[in-house]
């Protein structure tokens, strides 16, 4: 993901100088080589991202080693404070709060990802099997919730999960019908639980699972299935031996698109989650805003990044390698 920070200070400046542009131009880079157009096109977004993304990001990393002080802004470096304060990282591994928050986030995100896969895979497969005209409409219906407000989609479920909503009463009736009388409930406790968090995560992130799965399933060659069927395979075998292995890149892409935002989620656990079992995003926000402990908030943020940077790097590596293999194949 983010390259080593040590490379940052020099490169944006050098990228803008004509001296840096000329060797690339000599290598035949294309049509923009004259008159510094090239430099402007590279430098403007480059400088923007360095100033407004890379520098703030480096501040977080540096802040995770700072010491909390009762000043404004509430941190100290050097002087009477240690240059590198590792207290935050020590707390990360010893304080129960952080360990439990990481485990809750990991569990919620993993369950949500798995459920998205279980629901999204059949949906994506079904989408490849409808007529093209109907498929476009259905795909639009998959994407439509993605365009509407994220916050309002979470809110829509708050309306359904509340103790006296029609949905909750329906579930309560079903439950009371199925279980013996002494286990009857007045309502199903859904709000402010991890179940609610997972359910709403599946709801909001399902399109991110369906779309990459659909993209990889759509590319599959149907004649392979036919050949396997002609040779006597049953549909379940065709799925296990042909469809599933070929859709692995889609599964990985969809899985990361769901897992990464789910692990760092703040809005969903705040609105429908259990405040006694906060997820890691909530812990970062609370440390920062309520406790005004910038160094600790930054430490937790860095830890969260390292939980996710590695899967992402592994994924891009995997993707690049499988892409190469595909190109090598005749």
């Amino acid at each position: 993901m983010t390259p080593p920070p040590s490379a940052s200070p020099a490169s944006p400046a050098t990228a803008t100088t004509p001296a840096a542009a000329r060797p690339a131009a000599a290598a035949g880079a294309g049509w923009f080589d004259r008159r510094g157009w090239r430099d402007v096109i590279i430098a403007a977004p480059y400088l923007w991202l360095v100033v407004f993304f890379l520098v703030p990001f480096l501040i977080v990393i540096a802040m995770s080693f700072a010491t909390r002080t009762p000043t404004a802004p509430p941190f100290g470096f050097g002087g009477e404070n240690p240059i590198l304060n590792l207290q935050g990282y020590r707390r990360l591994f010893t304080d129960d709060l952080y360990i439990r928050a990481f485990l809750t986030s990991l569990l919620n995100a993993a369950v949500a990802t798995l459920l998205c896969l279980l629901v999204g895979y059949p949906m994506a497969l079904a989408l490849t099997r409808v007529s093209p005209s109907r498929r476009n409409i259905l795909l639009m219906l998959v994407v439509l919730p993605f365009w509407t407000s994220f916050l309002l989609r979470v809110y829509a479920w708050m309306g359904l999960m509340g103790t006296n909503s029609w949905f909750n009463r329906l579930l309560t009736d079903i439950w009371n019908f199925l279980v013996p009388a002494d286990m009857a409930l007045r309502y199903v406790p859904m709000m402010n639980t991890n179940f609610a968090v997972v359910l709403v995560m599946v709801y909001t992130y399902l399109p991110f699972m369906i779309l990459p799965l659909y993209a990889s399933l759509e590319r599959l060659d149907p004649t392979l299935d036919e050949a396997a069927m002609d040779l006597g395979s049953r549909p379940a075998q065709v799925f296990r031996d042909i469809t599933l292995p070929q859709s692995v890149p889609g599964i990985i892409a969809g899985g990361l698109l769901v897992f990464i935002p789910a692990a760092g989620e703040l809005v969903i656990p705040t609105l429908v989650g259990n405040a006694g079992q906060p997820m890691i995003g909530r812990v970062i926000a609370d440390e920062f805003a309520s406790a005004r402990d910038w160094p600790m908030a930054s430490t937790v943020a860095v830890a969260l990044l390292f939980l996710m940077v590695f899967p992402m790097m592994a994924y891009t590596h995997f993707q690049a390698r499988s892409e190469e293999r595909r190109k090598d194949a005749p």
């Binding site: 490169s11 690339a24 294309g30 590279i42």
Partner: peptide, 14 residues
Amino acid sequence: RFRRFRGRVLFSGL
């Protein structure tokens, strides 16, 4: 379009 410029790796990361 610009295949090679200094800091391209950092740029694509950013």
